[in-house]
Every structure is written in C-alpha cells, then in structure tokens.
Computed example of a mutant assay.
Amino acid sequence: MPRLTTSVLVSIALVLGLVACSPPTTQTPPVDTAVHTDASAPPDGAVDVVIPDGVIGTAELTSAPDGCVLTPGAVGTITWDLPDSRPGLLAVDTGARFGAGGATASADGAPLSYRAVADDTLNDIAERFGITDDDLGFLNPLTSRQLQAGDDLNLQVALRGGASVSPPWA
C-alpha cells in the first residue's frame, strides 16, 4: 500500500508542476543571440541567421515563461528569405502534342497548371512548356514519377508551395 500512495503523490506533484507554469510576463527579457549568429542582433529584436552563402531567414525570439518543466528556452517565428534557385523559370505553352495533349489553366496568357491525359509523359509535357524534366520536377515535388490521367501539374514557381488554381475543367 505505501508504494501505491507514493506513486499517486509523485503523479499529483508532476501534474501540478506541469500545470502550475507561471503566465507569460508583460516585459520580455532580451534573448542572447551570440551563439546563434555571427552578427549582433539588430535593435528591433530580430536575429539574422547567418550561413556561409548569406542570410536565409530572420527569427524574432522571445523568452519562454519560467516555471514550467517542459518549456523551451525561447519561442518565436522564422521568416524565410530564400534566393530564387531557378531564376527565369517560365513555362510557355507551345500547344498540344502527342504525349502532352491535356488542358491548361492560364492567367494573362501564362500557363498556371496542366491536367494530364492518357499517354502523357513528363518529358513530353516539359517539352510542350519549354522547360526541362528537372524544372517540371521542381515545380511539382512528386512522390512518384508515375503520371496518371487526371493529375494536375503546377507550371508556376509562385504556386509551387501548394497555392491552388481554379482549372478550366472544374
């Protein structure tokens, strides 16, 4: 019986320790950024993350509240600023052909997306839009190289992250 009582008391103490975190303070102490960057932090509290090729992101960090067992040292948001890895990548529709006979959705004359039909190949689709197979793979991070009829392929760098386009067949 004493072992059960000890287990219950330890469990209660652990739960109280986890839920008894102090609320965030209204005044946030500064975060030491010396170990995270080679440059000193700008006065606005932003921290540049420096890598050999340049700055790719800015983090705004605040100290986490004290008193919690599982609290991280700091919390914040990272804003990424990655350089364009494929400058000038622009798909131009040269017209339907065997192996690339599907429909495109366009805006202001620029193709936005392509819907594959039976017998389409990635190589022929890339050729139709004047880009390489590698460019098509960059625009559409595919888990499989198997193209199926009805698959929608992105043709715009700006839409690579999953922004949706209303296709003409919808």
Rank of each mutant, 00 (worst) to 15 (best):
D152L: 10
T33S: 02
T104I: 15
V8C: 10
D66W: 04
S7T: 08
G67S: 04
G88K: 08
R86L: 03
E60N: 12
V8L: 14
G45E: 09
A41I: 00
E127N: 09
G130I: 00
I78T: 01
A20K: 05
D152E: 11
C68P: 08
V8K: 00
L82G: 00
W80P: 01
L16C: 08
C68H: 05
C21Y: 11
I125L: 10
L136R: 08
P167E: 15
D120K: 14
R86Y: 02
G137D: 14
P23Q: 12
T71N: 10
V50K: 00
L14D: 10
V50E: 01
G162A: 11
A100Q: 10
L16N: 07
T33K: 00
R3A: 15
N123L: 11
T143R: 11
A126R: 12
S164G: 09
M1T: 10
W80D: 05
V117D: 08
G150L: 04
T77M: 07
R3V: 14
A105K: 03
L16F: 07
A170W: 01
P65E: 01
A46M: 11
V49S: 12
Q146Y: 13
V8G: 01
A116T: 06
I51D: 12
D124L: 03
A118H: 10
S85N: 10
Q146P: 04
N123R: 11
T104S: 14
L90K: 15
A41E: 05
P167N: 15
L18C: 09
I78A: 02
V49K: 03
E60H: 14
P23L: 14
V75Q: 04
T5N: 02
L122S: 05
D84H: 09
T26F: 06
G54S: 07
P141D: 14
P87L: 01
N140L: 07
A170S: 14
Q156F: 00
L89D: 04
S113R: 09
A116C: 09
P43K: 09
W80G: 04
